[in-house]
Nucleic acid binder design. Structure first.
Length: 423
RNA sequence: GGAGAGGUGGCAGAGUGGUCGAAUGCGCACGCUUGGAAAGCGUGUGUAGGGUUAAACCUACCGAGGGUUCGAAUCCCUCCCUCUCCGCCA
């Protein structure tokens, strides 16, 4: 959510940012309802002040006295007036909040203007994705692939996009998760195992609701299966005030992630490319507002270092204003080279939300100088998502004999150098 | 799931219809005192919204939401959470 004061004081700034974001939100409609709300709240508060003043007088009058009775009669009218106006105010307030929720976050000045995927800026390449990968094939074409990654039985038991990971496939997932968690812990991210179901308040605070309702699985109890650990992790400090000296707070969490992804099709969803349930380790930072862009680059660096240790060629994208998410001010994507499919796969998205989530979630720090609570900034990024990293590892490192050679960093976690599909 | 108890400021804990944003204690901050400290004494100490150049000022908030009333922390209803006991269970 944006600061309503920004909307009042600098509407042009908001309008310009909305244009840059290629959003079609009606900023002036939001301003109009904000005006209406302010008028109403002032009226209601004035009437309440009258009530309160009368209350003080009545307390001093003898209970059954004529003056007292007269005052009761007089105040009945005021009471009715308050009731009526208050109902109108509440109604308006709901609309006001809904209207404010429709405004996306404003892109940072360093974000390139653009509308589509091809407007994203490639900042850098790492590793040699143009090298020879002599045995690379799309991972689902690897001989006996289904022995370790059983999509057929997953479809039977649950549905498409819910594979079983079997034997060395499962072991490989575990090795990657342990590797990610261990590396992140060493970089100062405290490990957390959060709940993987969240309530509507939490999903609203991070921006999944109401904007992306169709993304999540929902239960009868109105709980949502998390689409990312970002949701429970960010909400850990919801409605809390953190000591300024504790910033930045850094945490990481592994969770399965659940996404409905309604409407996707084609090569994007083959094999491990896109699943309804997948494993991911998420990095999260709560930072002082003055530090959030410095911290964002550090966060991205931390995610990158994982790819470097896994010896996977990757590139860094700076997302353009129109292709960024609803809640972000700036976003980098890390894409790994998948030699078999000959395409880039997104494995991490590192974002600054500034105070957008913090305002919805009411997460603040206490300014040591003024003693006042102020909204902090939240950042997050994947570190990393398992299935696509897995896809690239399998494809890029496939040997002539059908085995997959693992990078040195992963060997201690997997327990041996090669993944075998023979059984 | 069943039975009972309870949710008040940073914490503890009063308050059962009116002057209560809320006694008191602790904590915290500042000042006095002291060679310095402790003790003691004094003053202050929540959050949010509106309003203002800034203030003043106004309003709301006693788990959440409704209701009764001229007026609700206090009475009524619904929900949530915590604790104790019982049942069930990895």
């Amino acid at each position: 959510m944006l600061d309503p004061k920004l909307l009042r004081e600098s509407p042009d700034l908001v309008r310009a940012a909305i244009v840059k974001k290629h959003s079609d939100v009606d900023v002036d409609a939001v301003i109009a309802i904000d005006d209406r709300w302010r008028t109403l709240i002032t009226e209601v508060e004035n009437s309440r002040a009258k009530q309160k003043a009368a209350n003080g007088e009545m307390a001093k009058l003898p209970k059954g006295s004529p003056e007292f009775i007269a005052k009761v009669q007089e105040m009945k009218a005021v009471s009715a007036e308050v009731k009526e106006k208050d109902a109108l105010l509440k109604e308006t307030e709901i609309k006001w909040k809904q209207a404010l929720m429709t405004l996306p976050n404003l892109p940072h000045e360093s974000v390139p203007e653009g509308r589509f995927e091809e407007d994203n800026v490639v900042l850098s390449h790492h590793g040699d994705h143009e090298a020879e990968f002599p045995h690379a094939v799309s991972h689902w074409e690897i001989h006996d692939f289904e022995k370790l990654f059983d999509f057929g039985r997953g479809a039977k038991v649950t549905g498409a996009g819910f594979p079983f990971f079997v034997g060395e496939g499962s072991r490989l997932v575990r090795a990657l998760l342990n590797f990610f968690l261990e590396e992140n812990s060493q970089k100062g991210y405290t490990e957390v195992s959060p709940p993987i179901m969240v309530n509507a308040e939490s999903a609203t605070a991070t921006g999944q609701l109401p904007d992306k309702e169709g993304q999540m699985y929902e239960t009868l109890e109105q709980l949502y299966a998390v689409p990312t650990a970002e949701v429970p992790l960010t909400n850990f400090f919801r409605e809390e005030i953190i000591d300024e000296s504790a910033l930045p707070v850094q945490r990481c969490a592994y969770t399965p992630c659940f996404r409905r992804e309604a409407g996707s099709y084609g090569k994007d969803v083959r094999g491990l490319n896109r699943l309804h349930q997948f494993d991911k380790v998420e990095l999260l930072k709560w930072v002082h507002p003055s530090q959030s862009y410095v911290e964002l680059d550090k966060l991205r660096g931390d995610a990158e270092s994982l790819l470097q240790k896994l010896e996977l060629p990757y590139r860094v994208l700076l997302m353009c204003s129109g292709d960024m998410g609803f809640t972000q001010t700036k976003q980098y994507d890390l894409e790994v080279w998948s030699a078999g499919q000959k395409r880039w796969l997104e494995v991490s998205s590192c974002s600054n939300f500034e105070a957008f989530q913090a305002r919805r979630a009411q997460i603040r720090y206490r300014n040591a100088e003024t003693g006042k609570p102020e909204l902090l900034h939240t950042l997050n990024g994947s570190g990393l998502a398992v299935p696509r990293v897995l896809a690239a590892l399998l494809e890029n490192n496939l040997q002539a004999d059908g085995r997959v050679k693992l990078p040195a960093a992963l060997v201690p976690y997997f327990g041996k150098e090669y993944v075998s599909f023979s059984g």
